[in-house]
């Protein structure tokens, strides 16, 4: 649970649709790594981002604050942000901090991709 090393991958899975898979401790460094990957995907033309947190069990508010900044950047560009594979505690933390007001949460990656298919050719 307390494996701190962030393991991250990013991919453009369809036109305009970017996927980030992040597992590890979302602190300032982990949050920034996700933000950097998100920025690359957004600048590469992705208006829809899915962040898969399968394997992430521990977060802190500084890391989540950085995710809030990604969300605001996407919203400025009329983009869309979604998360999947959240633990109940991470889901509750996102709810408290307001991420779920603007981002959609899905139980798993397949469900997310199917749901987001209407916005991008997934």
């Amino acid at each position: 649970m307390t494996d701190e090393q962030m393991r991250l991958s990013k991919d453009i899975v369809a036109d305009g649709f970017g996927l980030i898979a992040a597992a590890g401790y979302i602190n300032n460094e982990g949050g920034q790594a996700i933000a950097d990957a998100a920025t690359e995907l957004i600048e590469g033309g992705c208006g829809t981002l899915l962040i898969d947190l399968d394997g992430t069990r521990i977060i802190n508010s500084i890391g989540v604050s950085i995710l809030l900044e990604i969300m605001e950047k996407l919203l400025e560009d009329k983009g869309r942000l979604a998360f999947c594979n959240l633990t109940p505690t991470i889901s509750k933390t996102f709810e408290i901090m307001g991420l779920v007001q603007y981002a959609t949460v899905y139980p798993d990656r397949d469900t997310a991709r199917a749901a987001l298919a209407g916005d991008a050719a997934v």
């Binding site: 508010s61 500084i62 989540v64 604050s65 809030l68 900044e69 605001e72 933390t93 408290i96 901090m97 307001g98 007001q101």
Partner: peptide, 20 residues
Amino acid sequence: RNSATRVAGCTTKRGWGLTL
């Protein structure tokens, strides 16, 4: 006690510790 509405749009998003 922090809230999402208080933080949205602010340049700083810190100060969540006690609330969480």
